[in-house]
Amino acid sequence: MCVEGLDDAEYELLKRCREVIGPDVLVSASMDLHGNVSRELAHQTDLITCYRTAPHVDVAETKERACRNLLYLINRRKNDEAFRPYKAWVPLPVLLPGEQTSTRDEPAAHIYGEVPAVEAVEGVIDAAIWVGYAWADEPRNRAVVVVTGWDKRAVSDGAEKLARTFWDAHKDFKFVAPTGTFAECLDAALRSDKRPYFISDSGDNPTAGGSGDVTWGLTQLLARPEFKDESGPIVIYASVPGPAAVEKAVEAGVGATITVTAGAEVDDIHAGPLTMTGRVHAIKHGDRHASTEVVLQVGSVYAILTKLRKPYHLERDFTELSLTPRSADIVIVKIGYLEPELYDMAKDWMLGLTPGGVDQDLVRLGHRRILRPMWPFDREFKEPDLTSRIIDMSNESLA
């Protein structure tokens, strides 16, 4: 997370927990690999691990590993054995979005493929690689390797091996799909005979930190002449929050034609609130993310409006709204890389380099506080220091 006034929110949270629970209580943390691990955060934890896949299909496995390793430490303490492991921490001058570091593709596939072998070494408990969070501007934002275990040499060697593998491939990272402007993505989708054709409106991905209420993409879509008539190509757009618009649609009911305004209540930098007239196609109550969802058909576009922002990752997210994404011509989602169900459903897709809080064009965001040099903001590098820093929680100060 990113909190105004704090440069390391997770460390601050754990530090305050430590003030309550004291230094002797064991702490195990599991994280998203897109998070940040400062040296201070690593010092305050006894065990720290993260996902090894992106998209994150190993969430449950990661939680289990964090718990299993914690129980292992607790049992060692019960048996009067040494129970506080070493952590080898290596920062890397690389800061990339998940859309360039998916483990479906190289080079992330082989980088993360090295993790189990390092973890299997005698004296090692866990090995983890974070790619960092690219859309915050803090000194801690960068890639990091942490290897935990009893053998100081083993954890140090393992961390340095993973860091070297990562750095040697830093120039090879690329986007997970063909990219283009929003207009270029729409043009490509219309030319293609592959259906459904997915487009990622990536600049406002709510699961990456976007507000979710940027109206720029839907505004551009509804302005296209190809979609003005109901007989045009069927497009599903997910989504724009608009509590007042949702309330009006609910009052009017399915089948009613209404004019509503939605979006840009949080992020109005790129486009203002969007007013549109359409027919209420569906209404759904009780969604755990959105609370209430409605579908408004405007021409051949089925725009999903929500009371609260919601990511659309599953086929049932659409079918429960009386939408059939498999038979649509184009499906546009505010997301980065496609989540597994969408990826399997898409016959082809493009990553739209659209504006928003999580713009994939990192350089144009204007980072000012990250440590430099940093790839890809800087292209000329001296060899970085990839030696491990040993952090020993049994020591009151940083080792």
Rank of each mutant, 00 (worst) to 15 (best):
V3E: 13
A9W: 04
Y11W: 12
R16H: 14
S30C: 14
G35N: 10
G35P: 08
R39D: 05
T45R: 12
T45P: 03
I48T: 09
H56D: 08
E61W: 00
A66R: 11
R68I: 00
N75H: 11
N75I: 00
N75T: 07
K78R: 15
E81G: 00
E99W: 02
D105E: 10
V115G: 05
V115S: 06
P116V: 09
V118I: 15
E119L: 04
V121N: 13
D126C: 10
R142I: 01
A143R: 07
A143C: 11
K152V: 15
V155Y: 03
D168A: 13
D168G: 11
V176W: 01
G180V: 08
E184D: 08
L186T: 09
A189P: 05
S192A: 14
N205H: 07
P206C: 06
D213R: 09
I234S: 01
A256P: 06
T257D: 09
A262Y: 02
V294Q: 03
P311M: 01
P311H: 02
F318P: 02
T319C: 06
S327M: 02
I332M: 11
G336T: 02
D344W: 03
D348E: 14
G352M: 06
G352Y: 03
G357S: 10
D361T: 12
R364K: 15
H367G: 04
I370W: 04
F377H: 14
R379Y: 04
I390R: 06
